[in-house]
Nucleic acid binder design. Sequence first.
DNA 1: TTACATATTTGTAATTATTACAAAATAACA
DNA 2: TGTTATTTTGTAATAATTACAAATATGTAA
Lengths: 131, 131
Amino acid sequence: MLKECGIKPSKHRIAIFEYLFNHRVHPTVDIIFKDLFFDIPTLSKTTVYNTLKLFSEHGIIKILNIDENNLRYDADISEHAHFKCDKCKRLIDIPMKNRKFEGLETCGLIISEYQIYCKGICNECQNSNIQ
Amino acid sequence: MLKECGIKPSKHRIAIFEYLFNHRVHPTVDIIFKDLFFDIPTLSKTTVYNTLKLFSEHGIIKILNIDENNLRYDADISEHAHFKCDKCKRLIDIPMKNRKFEGLETCGLIISEYQIYCKGICNECQNSNIQ
DNA sequence: TTACATATTTGTAATTATTACAAAATAACA
DNA sequence: TGTTATTTTGTAATAATTACAAATATGTAA
């Protein structure tokens, strides 16, 4: 997959991409780094930053800016929206079919990418009565 | 307007809200602070941060997270999307009518707010041939 | 007006995510 | 093996935002 996007597949790059591909919770750099560091003790956080930026420049992942504090990363580049629960803080994918924005398509802008970010309360937190 | 939202209108609060209301370019804290500081030399940047956070908590403004580096603020709380030009970096409002997300409304999540962020090339930058 | 309580603002310091960059390590290849 | 290019590392720099205590301003009752 990396090769197809014109990225030379080094050990670390493969590890980072695999991690993101297998962990669909949109992790932060910190989470990715800490988890991988367990297996690859020579890994540097800068490498994680560099590699993820490289990936996103080649369009193989997407950077999510939904969280105020830090960036999050998503290996699923198919069309879907993102939801952040105000209670449990989890990020959840929302599938989207037949989306339609009147106005957005017809304003003369060339739109190369877009993101839809939602906030509210997720299913689990609605059902649990713990405040 | 501030009173209606349950915010005590102090001098600075009025100044900050007026500024945002009259400058619809979604300025950063830094821009707001520097412009207002010219007239109010006693103003502190922390006050700008505090005040804007207060405003957004009371729903009288919206915080935009479209820019990677810093937050931006919008006194227009009506439904519209935002576009950032990759060339000139400007933020542009996109009006939206009859938007429809199939899937988004029917997934059981309670969505209290959402944002649509687009990126690409704006009209002006398409027409100017300067790279 | 004065005294007091409350709310607001200030300014500095701390926190934290991200980037810059040069050195070190690794890989590619003749 | 020797040389070059690429990747990775680790530290330092940058910069946005927040924490917090002190200072200031405001409102109110006596």
